[in-house]
Design a protein around this nucleic acid. Structure first.
Lengths: 150, 150
DNA sequence: GAGCTTACGGTCAATCTCATCCATAGAAAC
DNA sequence: GTTTCTATGGATGAGATTGACCGTAAGCTC
């Protein structure tokens, strides 16, 4: 995991369809060497998969909200994860430190649908309350930077 | 944007390196037709780019936090966005409805570094306070579902 | 309604790029 | 000195890309 690997990741995050020859050229290696490095990054699980970045609005998911979930029990176990996984509009689910116990990111098509999701979250075992934070505008969403922190 | 397009997006989100022939077979089309549909999805901006999914821990970003930012001025303008964009560990920045005015997602290597980031956020014009929500465990993070909501 | 035009996808096949694999060589570690 | 790792460069086969061609449906004219 050296500087070249980081650069390769940076390049692939920006455009994973780039040919290996271009990739190699950008980091000063042959296409074969670039290929081998990327193969190893995948093998080691550092690169998990190649995917596409989709416009949520085009998918009819124009409403974004973060929901903090309060509970009267420990929510860090698999049954909770599965219950949340079963709700397609829940994109992220985290166990957090603080007064609430869970934080989830939800993308719906309307505020009506958001309300329906909140109702559904309420029905999960242990949930005693929710607090929705509705997003008015997203400045940006970007992948994890591979550069060292500034 | 019909059922086949949605299926193609679903498949590509899972593995964007899949050959067009396999893609076509999965939706009952020829490779050429699948290719043409994907090309148009890109052209229309529904597919923004192909990218890779990277393990944040491998990049030395094992600490995830959401930070709610309070302010004494309107923070929804470009200068604020640029100030946040300049901090590499800030992955997302949203203008929110509610008592705080901004919500940002931050990934750092350590809590020390998180503290440094909070200090830096404080220095942005208009910021009067921050409230960090530290993530203990992430259940999952997944792409926006292209299936219609349940 | 019949016939025509056009737009829109679709299939199939030809071509050409690129991924992939392998032999080899050099450098670094032990 | 030996082993291991990583690079290069070339062969080859897979797959992306493109163009020619076809079927269908909508809209138009008569």
């Amino acid at each position: 995991m050296d500087e070249i690997d980081r650069k390769l990741i940076e390049l692939l995050q920006h455009d994973a369809a780039r040919p290996y020859s271009a990739l190699g050229e950008a980091v000063g290696l042959s296409s074969g060497a670039a290929h081998e490095r990327v193969r190893k990054l995948r093998e080691r699980g550092i690169i998990r998969r190649t995917t596409i970045d989709v416009d949520p609005v085009a998918l009819g998911r124009g409403v974004l909200a973060f929901v903090m979930i309060d509970s009267n029990a420990w929510m860090g176990d698999p049954p909770t994860a599965e219950a949340l996984l079963a709700v397609p509009v829940v994109e992220e689910a985290h166990v957090i430190a603080g007064s609430s116990s869970l934080l989830v990111k939800v993308r719906t098509g309307s505020t009506d649908e958001l309300q329906a999701v909140l109702r559904r979250l309420f029905q999960i075992d242990g949930v005693t309350g929710t607090q929705a934070i509705v997003v008015l505008q997203t400045f940006f969403e970007r992948p994890t930077s591979s550069l060292s922190a500034c």
